[in-house]
Every structure is written in C-alpha cells, then in structure tokens.
Design a protein around this nucleic acid. Structure first.
Length: 896
RNA sequence: GCCCGCUUAGCUCAGUGGUAGAGCGCGCGCUUCACACGCGCGAAGUCGCAGGUUCGAGUCCUGCAGCGGGCACCA
C-alpha cells in the first residue's frame, strides 16, 4: 500500500463530508434505538449577510465536538442549523446594491423590494451556513431553518398575537432610540456608546420679573428650543426660592417653570438642569412626572422642526447647535463653553449618532415574561451557565432590570407586524388578515407598515425551529435542548429572551446548559474586527493547516479569552501528521493483522506493555469522556494529545516494534500487529469529535473494519468512525500496577539515554548496560524487557542482576525501588565529569529529602494530615534514601 | 460610581488545598528501517505584591497594584 509520508488534509475533507451528508449520518433518524436518550442543540443562527469568522469557528467546533461525542455515545442526536434574516443589515446590503443602479427602495416599492431581498439572499446570503460544511459541522441539513421561513413567520405572528391578547404587547408613544440614517427605531441593545471629546455649554435663562438668570449646562444646546422646564434638586438651597418661578426661554418667546425633582444632582454642573421631554430619556421621565408639555424640535431626519422656530426650521441638528450658540452669544446669555468628554450613542449598524425621539411604536413588557426564568435561575440555578461565574449573575441582573422592548422597526425586510387598522384607526391584531377583516367587519383595512425587531423571531428560535406553535414530534422529542453555545455579548439580546419564550410557551427552559465561549483576540490582544482588518480568516487556517488542526486548537480555547497564536495550530498540524505516521506504521505492518483482535484471553497472560497500554487507553477514555461532559475541552485535548504521542507513539509502538516488525510471519507477530491496530482504532474514535477528517480517513483504511465496530444503535449503517461507539473507559482494564511497572522500564531507558547524551556517546554506538535490582519482581520485569531495553537504549547487551558489581569505569544512575543502572564506559568516561554528574544528582535528592524530613518532623502535620498523605511522604523519603545511598556507593567506587 | 475577570517559564496558556505543567521558542546531539510537521537529551518559574486561614496555599479569604471587561451615570 502506498501511503505518503505527510498528511494532506484537503482532499479527504471534502470527500468524507460529502459521504457523511449523503448517507444521512447527521440526522437523528440514523439512530434506530427508540429508547436512546436525546441530545439536541440549536445553532445560534448566524446573520445571513455575514461571513465566517473565528468566533463562529470556535462556537461551531464546540457544538460539533459535543454533537459528535454524544452521537457516538448512542444518543439520538440533533444539531439544527439555520440562519437569521438580519433585518437592518440585509436591507442595507440590498439598498446599497440598488444605489449602484441609481435606485432607492422607494422607486421599487415595498413588494418589489422585498422580492429583491429574497433574490439577494438566494444569491449571496448564507455564506456562513455554506462554510459550515467545510468545518465538518455535523448538522442535520434536512432541518435547516431560516427566520423568514413560512413556519417561523407563523410562530412570530402567534407569539405577537398571544402577547397582545394578554396585554404584554402594546402600541403607544414612548421615547425611543432612532437612527436618522436607517430611519428606524432601535432597541437599547442595538446601540453602542462611545466616548467623545465634546463641549459643555453653559446657558443663561432669565428669570421673569427679575434681573436674575439661571445657568444650565448642556452638551446639546440645540435642544433648548424644546425645553419645557428647568429642574433643580428640592433640597438645593441655592435654588429653593426659585422653585415655581417662571423663566423666559431665550430664542423662543416661551415661558417655562422651574421645577423640583430628586433626579437632579446638585453637585453636577450648576445644579440646574434644562428639561427637554421630547428629546432626552431622563427628561422624558421627568416630563411625565411633572406633566410637562413635549415639544418636538427635531424630526426623524435629525433636522429642526417648525416648532423650533422659523429661523431654525429645516436646519440639521449640528447647524442648529452652532446657530443657537451664536444667538446666545449675541444676547450675552452664553456663560461659558468648556471642553468636556462625554459618551455618545451610535447606531450599532451604521454608526450614525442616535436621536432620542418621541414616537409611536409597539412595545413588549419584558419584565412580565422574565418572571418565570428569573425564578428558575434563582431557585434552581437553571439553566446552568458554564462558566457559572460571572454569567449566571450577568443573566440574573439583566432579568431583574428590564424595561419595555421596542419591537417595531421602520424597515421593509422582516416580519410585518400582524396589526391592521380600519378607516377609523381602530387596530386589529390577528394571526391573519382574514381574521382581522372578520373582526373589523370590513375589507378596508391597512396593515401596520412596520416590521419586528429581528431578535423577536430569534427569541423563538429553539421552539419555532422544532415546529412550534404546532405540537410536533420534533418539539416533543428535542425540546428542551441540551445546551446553547454562544458568545457572551449575546446573553441579553438573545439567551434571556429565548428563556422567556421557552418558559412561556413550553413551560420549560429552552436549554439545560448555556456554554459561553471566550473571545479570540489578535496576537497583540486587540479585538478582531473588520474595521481594523486584524481578523484571522478561519478558511485561511483551514487551507494552511487543515480543518482538524484548526478545530482542535479552537476547542481548547473553551471559555477563556485568548490571543490568537498561529504557532499553536502549526503544532497541531504536526500532531495530525504524527497520527498519520503512526497509522502509516501500523498499516505498513498490518499483513496478517486485524482490528479488534490481539487482546484475547486472560489479561494476566498479556505482556506487561500490553496491559499497560490498555490501562492507559481506558484511563484516557474515562478522563476524556468526563472532560467533554463537563465542557473541559482543554483537558480532553491535552489528555488525548499525550496519550497518543507519548504513550502510544513514543512507548507502546516502540516497545512493540520488535514483535511487530518481525520478518517471519508468526502468530506472535500477527497478534502484536493486531494489538497496535486495535489501540490505534480506539484512539481514532477518541479523537474523532475533535479531528473528524483525519480520523475517518485513517479509520477507513484499517484492515478488519466493518459494521461490527459501530455503536449498536447504528449497526445498520455503512461503516464510519463517526458512528462507532465512543470508548467509555473500562474500569477492569485499568491496571495501576502495570502502569507503575512500565514506568520503571521507562525510567531505566531514560536514565541510560541521559548517560549516553551527557557522556557524548555517538547515537550509532551501542554500549553495554548493567541493571541492578535487589527487588525480585522488579528484576523479573527488567529481565523480561531486555530486548526492548536493548533496542530503545541502544545497548549492545543488557545484564540484569540483583546488584551491580561492575567495572569502575562506569556511569551510574539510580532508579525507583532501589534499582540502579551502570553503563561501563572503559576509555570513554571522564571520571571528574561523572563524579560531578553524580554529585549534582545527590544534591537534588538532598534538597528534596530535607523538605520531606521537615514536613514529617512537624507534629502538626503528622497528626492532622490524612494518614495516607503522611504515608505517601514516608514512601517518597524512603525512595530518596535508597537512591542517595546507591549514589554514594557509585561515588565511592569512582574515588581516586 | 457599582460589579466582574485576569496576573504561573522568553511567548501563548493549563493547573481540581498535598512533589509547579504543556505547546512553541531556546541549547546540545542525531538522515536510528512510521514520522526532520521527526527522534533523543537538556536548561529555564521568589506562581503580580502584602497580609490572613490551614499541618500544608499557585489553588481559599482580605487588602493593594497593573491590565482587561460589563453595567449605571454623564444636564
């Protein structure tokens, strides 16, 4: 068989994915065990306009590891893919496209525009979802969903109507965040705050019937045109006599009162605050408290209205600002202007400065929906957040401090609000237009032009994708889902809302666990962003290092924020290559061998290193399974890496080599060959969730592979490692004594290698080795291992005795259990160098012994520490004493 | 202002009260018949600082410093 020396991932990746998909391996129906437990995940639907970035690759890897692991464990497993219609960004994309044709959406009209968006979506959208095939994501494509699908749209209408009927959704006027560019309302979660260097303007307002002036400070002087009061703190003595007084609002001819409100901080600015109820959230609240008039001086395009006065009408808000300042200066009413840094609110999409506007919108009373999830997290700590700190608290805090959610968006792309108005303006909120007509008793209805916030449909994702509001088989089977894997910035926006809808409509939490991934920064610790251009493209990593290497590095990131380190992928590409070559060795020596054989018979009859590798393998399987189930992917990967490289490659293959590479066919040779193949096959299964492609590629090549290797639930399927049973780690095969004994062998070989290296023995040169082991059992182990010791330590001969009485010209090393080893080096050894080497060793032991002795001399320790801990220390001290005395003897033998 | 996280080898990071770890990098030596994307050997850490709890602290508690994040406010 021709097997290249280097693993080339590309070809294998596409081939295996296509086969898995075509064979239906990803669908839960592949599992024929009707009593199997269920494991389900819904993907956080990526934005239909987006492209795959490292954050997605990270989340997808973790979801795929969990999915593949549980599938191999025999769960009825579903990972449901899909995407989000992303209202604003999609609409912006298409409007941009139209602009290049010299058109606006208004030229097309609503219907044609929406058709155009669908066309755009088919042509360019869903890039991330397509790229998931490249990642190896084992999602069930037959259940792929899109938030604008008919089914999901129906779920949205149902949600809306029910909430409306229960009074949770209302239509009314409120002060909302408005984007003057995108011409739509935004929820507080769609805006971003940004520090900005600006100015604080101090304006004087004359007191009516007095020469006195009240000074107010503002960052937005243009809003003074809409002031309807000035507020002071009721306890502020400076102004107490002015409460109830009337001010002459400059430039407007309007008279406004001075009011008292606890909200005002006397320490800040002048202690007097201008109040603009129509254009500031705090002022809006204050306006309601004091029943102040609301004067709208800024329009949806951020231009001044007629109410701002003839001189200002039509001016942009910033032009108006300058003009107001000029006028105040002219009137001698500008007290001063100081530099001032404050934060400014911008549209999360287009970065335009938000204008708080008084506007009629649809709102949802989230606080009521939050009650059930809040109770659940407080009483039962459900869902379980991983890591619990700090996310459980972040989630709880948010649920406790909710405000009404602005649902309506003045866009064309999205779920149209299911509200119709008759000619008198009466509203009918119904599931269909027919119902509205019936309710209104007329056909002359107009539907509300607005659409819903994209997150409204996202909030329903775990239920709507499974068929809600219908009572479907999928919903009954896969809800609640097992885990939600997502980034932390979406906890408020999405996670908590899914919990709200899940509790409301299903009476159950949407997911058992919530795993929050870390953030990947660039190598300088900067957040990756399109604007900075410092993003690392996962596809580029796939091309350069292979998907498997990229995935296993990502899985290890878990929930820790980390800097991207390309060297790390390189080392896992090397790991993939190591796997490839270990398999290559097994396959090149596989004649006469078969997977699953070689470990027949009583375990006691196996060779020591065979008992050892089975112990290591099963221990690894236990650790890895527990680690994956507890979302400790780093631990799982490290364990697998060291099992495969250190235990399997460095030692097991090497210890087996003499048997495996025997030139003459024999039952012993074939059994040894079967054993390495069997261990390899188990290792491939263990690695598969992390490295799906290379494991499948190699697994398919193993001799003796058949459906018999599959988990019983998949016995009917074509052979594939992804449906093999995940090794669980059999306790009876864990053999601490064999591990200890092989450890002794490893120590012996390592000490000889160390001597060779320090004495500058050429690698090609062999040396005799004398082993002294007073312990009979240990001596037997070394004696049985002579051929392996000879091979791995490059020894010309290995003498195993009860003690060492070798030539004076030897290099010595001490081993555990009172054993020692000598390498006779007549003519090669430099006595001074050897003495120095031994003294250093002795010194190290002495320091360790001192520490142990001090601890054991401490009465408190001996009395209070657990007995086994004390015993352990005594053992260690005894071992050190033995080694020290052996070293002493060696030193004496070297004495002049 | 309130809350939270991080600080461990040159770098990126693990670490579960009981002998400080990995990968990369570094030094020395190797075309040893699976693999130079490799093999062998080695050097390298007052675990941010100061207290405390404990027989015992990188790990638990308190304070401090530096870095980072979230929330609120910002007239």
């Amino acid at each position: 068989m021709e097997i290249p020396k280097t693993y080339d991932p590309k070809e294998a990746e596409a081939r295996h994915y296509a086969r898995w998909e075509a064979q239906g391996f990803f669908a839960p129906e592949i599992n024929r065990d009707t009593s199997a437990p269920v494991y389900s995940i819904v993907i956080p639907p990526p934005n239909v306009t987006g492209a795959l970035h490292m954050g997605h690759a990270l989340q997808h890897t973790i979801m795929d590891v969990l999915t593949r692991y549980h599938r191999m464990r025999g769960y009825r497993t579903l990972w449901l893919p899909g995407e989000d219609h992303a209202g604003i960004s999609t609409q912006i994309q298409v409007e941009r496209q139209l602009k290049r044709e010299g058109l606006t959406r208004h030229d097309l009209g609503r219907e044609k525009f929406v058709a155009r968006v669908w066309q755009w979506k088919e042509q360019y959208g869903g890039e991330i979802i397509r790229q998931m095939r490249r990642e190896g994501a084992s999602v069930d494509w037959s259940r792929e969903r899109f938030t604008m699908d008919e089914g999901l749209s129906r779920a949205v209408r149902e949600f809306f109507v029910r909430c409306y009927e229960e009074g949770l959704i209302y239509h009314g006027e409120g002060l909302i965040s408005w984007c003057p560019k995108d011409q739509t309302a935004l929820s507080d979660l769609e805006v971003e705050k940004e520090a900005q260097a600006g100015k604080l303007y101090y304006l004087q307002y004359p007191v009516k019937g007095s020469a006195r002036r009240v000074i107010v400070a503002t960052t937005r002087p243009e809003t003074m045109l809409g002031d309807t009061a000035v507020a002071v703190n009721p306890n502020d003595e400076r102004y107490s006599d002015l409460i109830g007084a009337t001010l002459e609002l400059p430039l407007t001819g309007r008279e406004i009162p001075v009011i008292a409100d606890e909200f005002v901080d006397p320490e800040f600015g002048t202690g007097a605050v201008k109040v603009t109820p129509a254009h500031d959230p705090n002022d809006y609240q204050m306006g309601l408290r004091h029943k102040l008039p609301q004067v709208k001086v800024i329009d949806p395009y951020a231009r001044m209205t007629e109410a701002a006065g003839a001189e200002f009408t039509g001016l942009d808000r910033y032009e108006a600002r300058e003009k107001v300042i000029e006028k105040f200066e002219g009137l001698g009413l500008l007290e001063k202007v100081v530099d001032y840094e404050f934060s400014i609110t911008k549209c999360g999409r287009c970065r335009t400065v938000i204008e708080p506007l008084l506007s009629t919108q649809w709102f949802l009373k989230q606080a009521e929906l939050a009650r059930a999830p809040l109770e659940l997290i407080k009483e039962k700590h459900e869902p379980r957040f991983v890591p619990e700190v700090p996310y459980e608290k972040v989630y709880t805090n948010w649920l406790e401090n909710l405000y009404d959610w602005t649902l309506s968006r003045q866009l064309w792309w999205g779920h149209r609000i299911p509200a119709w108005y008759d000619e008198e303006g009466r509203v009918y909120v119904t599931r269909t237009e027919e119902e509205a007509r019936a309710a209104a008793g007329t056909d002359k209805l107009t539907q509300d032009p607005d659409v819903l916030d994209t997150w409204f449909s996202a909030a329903l994702w775990p239920v709507s994708t499974l068929g809600w509001p219908d009572d479907t088989e999928d919903l009954r089977t896969f809800y609640p889902t097992s885990v939600l894997v997502t980034a932390r910035d979406i906890i408020f926006l999405w996670v908590s809302r899914m919990m709200m809808t899940g509790m409301k409509f299903m009476g159950q939490k949407a997911f058992a666990d919530v795993f929050i991934t870390g953030t990947i920064f660039d190598k300088h610790g900067q957040r990756m962003s399109k604007m900075k251009g410092n993003g690392v493209d996962p596809l580029e990593m796939f091309d350069r290092y292979g998907v498997d290497a990229t995935r296993i590095v990502l899985a290890q990131i878990e929930s820790t924020d980390t800097r991207w380190n390309e060297k790390q992928i390189e080392s896992y590409r090397n790991f993939a290559n190591k796997i490839w070559n270990a398999a290559r060795f097994c396959l090149l020596n596989s004649e006469g061998a078969s997977v699953g054989r070689g470990f027949e018979g009583d375990r006691a009859s196996w060779a020591l290193h065979d008992r050892w590798i089975m112990s290591r393998l099963n221990r690894t399987a236990q650790t890895v399974s527990a680690a994956i189930e507890n979302y400790r992917f780093h631990e799982a990967v490290q364990t697998l890496y060291h099992f495969f490289w250190d235990d399997f490659c460095d030692w097991y293959i090497e210890l087996s080599k003499t048997d495996v590479t025997a030139t003459e066919p024999s039952p012993a040779r074939d059994a040894a060959r079967s054993r390495v193949l069997t261990v390899l096959e188990q290792a491939l299964r263990l690695l598969h969730p992390f490295m799906p492609f290379i494991t499948e590629e190699l697994w398919q090549r193993l001799p003796g592979i058949s459906a018999a290797q599959l988990h019983p639930a998949y016995a009917h399927a074509e052979p594939t490692v992804m449906l093999a049973a995940y090794p669980q780690g059999e306790q009876s095969l864990i053999d601490a004594r064999a591990e200890q004994e092989v450890q002794a062998l490893i120590e012996l070989i390592s000490r000889v290698r160390n001597i060779r290296s320090e004495m500058n023995i050429k690698p090609g040169e062999t040396v005799p080795v004398i082993v002294g082991a007073p312990d009979e059992n240990l001596r037997a182990i070394f004696a049985a291992g002579v051929p392996q010791i000879a091979r791995l330590a490059r020894a010309s001969e290995v003498l195993v005795q009860s003690g060492i009485n070798g030539p004076r010209a030897s290099a010595h090393a001490v081993l555990a259990g009172g054993a020692e080893v000598a390498v006779p080096l007549e003519g090669l050894i430099d006595f001074a160098v050897e003495r120095e080497r031994l003294r250093k060793e002795q010194e190290k032991l002495r320091r360790e012994a001192e520490k142990l002795e001090a601890q054991l001399a401490n009465q408190n320790f001996v009395e209070r520490a657990p007995a086994e801990k004390v015993e352990e220390l005594r053992q260690r001290l005894a071992d050190i004493a033995q080694r020290t005395s052996a070293l002493q003897q060696s030193l004496e033998a070297l004495a002049e």
